[in-house]
Design a protein around this nucleic acid. Structure first.
Lengths: 251, 251
DNA sequence: CGCACACTTGAACCCCCTCAACCCAAGTGG
DNA sequence: CCACTTGGGTTGAGGGGGTTCAAGTGTGCG
């Protein structure tokens, strides 16, 4: 009995031989350390799953028996307080490996914020994989370190940055990722709502909205649609994001 | 030329054969995965260093060529904004492994907040060690995962908790660690100043001081000296820390 | 068309910050 | 021994950035 049993999560298909070989996100995920001759083995332990928007597929405190690798869509990783206050600790996009935890229970929850697909690995199967491909372990350590660096950056944001700086950091970060993916260098599509941005930045939805409006009013960005942002002044954005522009509001 | 060259950091002694064998913090650090027959090898790559209080021994942005394992004292891990705002992302006590980073530069700074001793490993030497002791890599991954969990918890604190809850969380956390080390279950000794607590909790020194005073006034804690805290009501403390007690101020 | 939902905007409030004074203990030196 | 300094901590008064509460504005979709 696993945590999917009581939810309408769809198993698209069990991964079969040659599945991983044709995976188009393999090169940007942890799987890229496994050579061509190991892909059949990899495919034999991966199970492709589809999770609909709004679906919670990891719940804090539940037994941590699965690991996931996002192949399509986006999920939010979050923690909650008893009274409902929520903090999103990260957004997991395509290629993101999910579930790193030593404990036997998850320390966080995860919810698909758009229709999402992912490979699922059970704990014993991943362990078997690690035995067989020692490079995979190095790669996971690398991944964990990168997340740790990102977490420290986010702590700086949450503890010490102003609302202006938080929103600017968020946009600048998204822009960097988009550029790294080969997307246009001044246009963003945000899969998350304002509330999710707020829960990620430690703000309220109103403050996020107001801050974006202010940026738009100042001619720094444009908001062509609900989920699109055009960055009109990238240099200004990154200087606000890094806190170099702390008093610029008065200039 | 390493980053110690221009600072009065003292090399106590090069670790020699049998050094690690008699190390009394080995059992609570990553070194505990190395068996008795590997201790000479371990000692041959570890260099014991002494760092005085106030000394910065890792600087953000500098070339990340060393790893450290704290054997005595405490260091603060922090990041700064150009205008001096500081966020402490963690305190590294005895047994803490420091320097996990994939990048070739450190993403954070570290400063000893009391006189501190540590083992230093250069990057190539640690790499050699990892080749020789595969278990060590598993252990580092485990460490990184634990830090990731702690970081997520801290993001929840910084993004969503009130000052009361932050200070209570800090005390409760310290108490848990103290108890885990076998210290008395209601008495804390804090190696850090109020300012450092504030920089860790995303508050100001005044708010930390006021909040502690309030706790004391309410009979929940006692402050026998500058760096000591006695927890008079542990149950109340943990309920405030977890946010269950959000409105208790009115009761 | 009209409902639902996400977002925006406005006004009042409050928690925490800022600024400032003061306290206290530990040196230090005449 | 006491005056003075220094550094960390406490306490008070006032202000402001972000929240809260509330109303209004799209916008997609049946």
């Amino acid at each position: 009995m696993n945590e999917f049993a009581r939810r309408p999560v769809v198993v698209v298909r069990n991964a079969v031989v040659n599945q991983c070989e044709h995976c188009n996100v393999r090169h940007r995920s942890v799987c890229n350390v496994i050579e061509a001759d190991g892909l059949d083995r990899l495919a034999s332990v991966a199970e492709l799953r589809r999770v609909e928007k709004g679906q919670v597929f990891i719940e804090e405190g539940q037994s941590a028996r699965d690991f996931f690798n996002i192949t399509l869509g986006t999920a939010k990783i979050y923690k909650m307080l008893p009274d409902g206050r929520q903090q999103i600790t990260g957004f997991a996009g395509v290629g993101h490996f999910l579930g790193l935890a030593v404990s036997d229970t998850y320390a966080f929850s995860a919810e698909a914020i758009e229709d999402t697909e992912m490979c699922r690995f059970t704990r014993p199967k991943l362990r078997g994989l690690l035995e067989e491909f020692p490079l995979l372990e190095k790669r996971l350590l690398e991944t964990a370190c990168n997340e740790l660096v990102a977490a420290q950056e986010q702590m700086l944001l949450l503890g010490r940055k102003t609302a202006r700086e938080r929103v600017a950091t968020f946009l600048a970060m998204r822009l960097n990722e988009a550029v790294a993916c080969g997307d246009p260098p001044n246009r963003l599509t945000l899969p998350m709502t304002r509330l999710e941005i707020a829960d990620y930045l430690g703000l309220t939805i109103e403050t996020v909205s107001r801050t974006l409006s202010r940026f738009k009013q100042d001619g720094k960005i444009a908001l062509p649609s609900r989920d699109e942002v055009e960055i009109l002044d990238p240099h200004w954005l990154s200087s606000v994001a890094t806190g170099e522009d702390h008093h610029a509001a008065f200039i």
